[in-house]
Amino acid sequence: MRNKPASQHDEVTLSEHDGIRYLHFATEWVQGAMRIDKPAELVLEYTRQMMAWLLFLDPPREAAIGQLGLGAGSLTRFCLKHTDSPLQVVEWNPQVTLVCQWHMKLPAASRLVIDHEDAAVWVADPARQGQCPVLMVDLYDAQAQGPVRDSVQFYAHCRRVLGEVGVMTVNLFGNHDSFPRNLANLREAFDGRLALLPPIDAGNQIVLAFSGPPLQVSAEALLERAAQVEARYGLPARRWARSLIGAQRGQGLLDF
């Protein structure tokens, strides 16, 4: 499945329970979710963690927030509501986009561009260099057991898309055998500049990867930033900050 050509698209299906609509690829695995009466809310915990880049960067004003994998459009709807940034989404299955527009309340917006292309091909284009200082990567197929694009080369191309200074968040599956390989490939592509958030009950684990000059920040400054993010966006940012501080216990300054 990892090397499946883009012409072989997964069938998109929907389910609903207790006011939440779920997107699937014809399996029981959930690919995304939307609270029907609050479509911009991030229902799934891992999607909230995908926004942890806000601890380090403000939403860009001219360059785009990049998203590889549309899913149920949760991150797209959230960013359209809470930022003024241009949004660049790459989704290889046009049916996913149609379902999000028809059934997942994905709004039409002049600052939203969706390219229907293999994410690996998209990031490999040299013209993408520096296009998205923020990149959120969530690339899963119907089996949902590991990213479908995860090579060192792919992650190195993602780093090039970030440009001089940027942060990428990647949705990995911590208790699957793909996790160690992804972590090793990310470390190689980003010169070891990674930070891991704690895994959630569903098994997802979000990794942050950094481009640009080495970053040092005090625990106090990170917690202050987290409080601002929490107040503005309604995200559990102080929890994220405390976990990152705990991972570097004993250091006066945190390195990212």
Rank of each mutant, 00 (worst) to 15 (best):
P5Q: 08
A6S: 14
H9M: 11
L14G: 10
G19C: 08
G19F: 09
A33W: 05
A40H: 13
E41C: 04
M50R: 08
W53L: 03
F56K: 03
E62Y: 08
E62V: 13
A63I: 00
Q67Y: 00
Q67G: 01
G71V: 09
T76Y: 03
D84P: 04
Q88L: 11
V90W: 00
E91K: 09
V96S: 01
V96T: 11
T97H: 13
Q101C: 06
Q101E: 11
Q101K: 14
L112V: 02
I114S: 01
D115E: 12
A119F: 03
A120H: 04
A120W: 00
V123T: 10
V123G: 02
D125V: 05
D125K: 12
A127S: 14
G130Q: 03
V134L: 02
V137L: 10
Y140V: 04
Y140I: 06
V161P: 01
E164N: 08
V165P: 00
V170A: 05
V170H: 03
N171M: 06
F173Y: 13
P180W: 07
D191C: 12
A202S: 15
N204Q: 12
Q205N: 06
P213M: 12
A221M: 10
L223G: 03
A226T: 10
A226E: 02
Y233D: 02
L235N: 07
P236M: 01
W240L: 03
A241I: 02
S243K: 10
Q248E: 09
G250E: 10
F256I: 07
